[in-house]
């Protein structure tokens, strides 16, 4: 393993510990768990940033040039976004959902490692870089929406079954969570729309391949459609509540799993 890979291994362990910290506080009422998790998360995010810069400089390519670094880059952006909103929006409970996802994605990426994750792609066109970055940021928005939808569904389930003590007290209110899901989805989808549009434009006019021949773009388009459907049903039919949030959870989970199978296939 190279230096930055050791660093990423350390980061992976920190994510596991942060996951345990957040979950201990939210689900088992261990005071200080989330605080410890937050400190670990901050440290890990800094280390992961250094590792990604190290990798970029070593290979002289973007940090999303192959599946391994792209997954790490996505996790890094997701956690930066989470840390930025956690305190101002009082979303400690979200940590118990974001950290396991970050750990899971990092773990799968690490398990297949660089060698099997495909050789670094060439970014001949600046349009392609913009396209990939925007889609990546869009996924971060949708990833946050996914975790927030899980928070919403947990809270809703507890209210419906009248189990409203313990963990319930740590969860943000349903209305606030619902609004945050909507905001994250809207921002994520807007970024993704621009990213996809650039992708299609670049595919048609520049050197990179036709969009319908790139599975990742098709998958992104599918995800885009799913989240656009959520926004439409919400705006036009007034869909709120568990059905709408299940749509987000199922859609994003299917997307992540399919993408991982596609990216890390043997």
């Amino acid at each position: 393993m190279k230096g930055h890979e050791w660093l990423l291994m350390l980061v992976l362990l920190a994510y596991l510990a942060a996951t345990m910290g957040y979950q201990a506080e939210i689900f088992f009422k261990v005071k200080g768990g989330a605080r410890g998790g937050r400190i670990l998360l901050l440290g890990a995010v800094v280390l992961q940033g250094i590792a990604l810069v190290g990798h970029t400089l070593a290979l002289r390519t973007a940090p999303f040039a192959n599946a391994f670094t792209a997954a790490n880059f996505f996790v890094w952006l997701l956690l930066v976004a989470f840390l930025l909103v956690e305190k101002p929006r009082r979303l400690t409970a979200l940590g118990a959902f974001v950290t396991p996802m970050a750990f899971f994605v990092s773990l799968v990426a690490f398990a297949v490692r660089m060698g099997r994750a495909g050789s670094p792609a060439r970014f001949d066109s600046p349009w392609l870089v913009v396209h990939v970055v925007l889609i990546g940021l869009g996924f971060v928005g949708l990833g946050l929406a996914f975790c927030l939808a899980l928070v919403y569904l947990t809270s809703e389930k507890m209210l419906k079954t009248k189990h409203v003590t313990g963990t319930f007290r740590y969860l943000p209110s349903l209305q606030i969570t619902d609004q945050l899901v909507l905001q994250s989805t809207t921002i994520g989808l807007a970024l993704m729309t621009v990213g996809l549009a650039i992708g299609f434009y670049g595919g048609m006019t520049h050197t990179f391949i036709a969009p319908w021949r790139d599975g990742r773009i098709l998958l992104s388009a599918f995800t885009w459609l799913l989240f656009a459907l959520y926004l439409c049903t919400r705006r036009l039919l007034g869909w709120q509540g568990s059905k709408a949030h299940w749509m987000i959870v199922a859609g994003f989970a299917v997307f992540v799993l399919t993408l991982m199978v596609y990216q890390f296939r043997p």
């Binding site: 409203v164 319930f168 969860l171 209110s173 349903l174 209305q175 606030i176």
Partner: peptide
């Protein structure tokens, strides 16, 4: 308390 947990504000 429950109302606050549902509506926030």
């Amino acid at each position: 308390e429950l109302a606050k947990q549902i509506f926030g504000d």
